[in-house]
């Protein structure tokens, strides 16, 4: 059988589950359907750029960026430890790190609710030591925590997979030439790991930007994110046109951020997403 024949099922899959839905969203966003029939309109997009909705976009971007930075700061050292050459039980560590990801995302988020609540585990332990904690659940911090917790592996794994592939002789050469560890990291290891970092950033930033479950459960729906807004348009208000316009703008933003990170990705470095 020829190779391109094998690709047809995938092409069909893409058509049914990616292209057609995208086309539908685009259709709903620019066409209004009423008694007079179907007509072209940009009202939905005008509405997206009202201050009220821009504020929601801004909050989503801010929280997603915060989570991404925290994931990077926590994740990079973690990836280095995992990739470290003097670690004998490396694969076990990697497995331990990945195991929580096997559990359902919702279940993990619910677990944080019980940990953070007023009579929850953390507050109870703190109370035992005489510390009176302020309310942890239903705060902006809880939302960021939920994002970091859920998306951290997506930062660590791409960086890890790039780091383990770095040619050790390059590092040794730098050391032989008198570079101290900081210089080695700054001038050799980090530049070589950029593809992993940039795909890590993309893989954390995108789901953090679009999530609506974390902000509902851990934020107590106090912090409307763009995902919540879209969900509300489709399920409660039935304003599919506006919901679609929001989705299109969100998609454009994601593509823009992907374009930015892609510039830093070199080809065939292994950690890349695409």
């Amino acid at each position: 059988m020829k190779k391109h024949l094998m690709a047809y099922p995938y092409a069909l899959w893409m058509l049914i589950f990616t292209m057609i839905p995208l086309a539908l969203i685009l259709f709903y966003s620019v066409f209004a359907i009423d008694d007079a029939g179907i007509h072209f309109t940009l009202d939905n997009f005008k509405r997206v750029f009202e201050p009220l909705y821009l504020a929601v976009f801004w909050r989503s971007i801010k929280l997603a960026a915060e989570s991404t930075i925290i994931c990077l700061v926590l994740g990079y050292p973690m990836a280095m430890i995992l990739a470290g050459k003097n670690l004998s039980k490396k694969s076990i560590l990697v497995v331990l790190f990945v195991i929580p990801m096997w559990m359902n995302f919702l279940a993990r988020t619910y677990a944080w609710m019980t940990l953070l609540e007023k009579n929850g585990l953390i507050a109870t332990i703190a109370g035992f030591f005489g510390i009176d904690l302020p309310s942890l659940l239903y705060t902006e911090g809880a939302v960021v925590l939920g994002m970091v917790y859920n998306f951290l592996p997506f930062m660590v794994l791409p960086i890890y997979s790039v780091l383990v592939k770095i040619d050790k002789t390059v590092v040794e050469a730098a050391e032989d030439l008198g570079a101290n560890p900081i210089t080695v990291f700054r001038r050799v290891i980090f530049p070589l790991s950029i593809p992993g970092v940039s795909s890590g950033i993309t893989m954390v930033f995108m789901p953090a930007l679009t999530t609506f479950v974390i902000s509902r459960l851990l934020g107590g729906a106090h912090f409307t994110l763009i995902g919540n807004l879209i969900e509300q348009q489709f399920l409660t208000t039935m304003d599919w046109g506006f919901g679609s316009a929001l989705s299109i703008v969100l998609m454009l933003m994601i593509m823009l951020s992907m374009g930015v990170t892609m510039r830093y990705e070199k080809e065939n470095e292994g950690g890349g997403l695409w």
Partner: peptide, 13 residues
């Protein structure tokens, strides 16, 4: 319903 939706979004956003 759109009016209600807008109020609700304004309150929560």
């Amino acid at each position: 319903l759109v009016k209600y939706d807008r109020i609700w979004t304004e309150v929560k956003a």
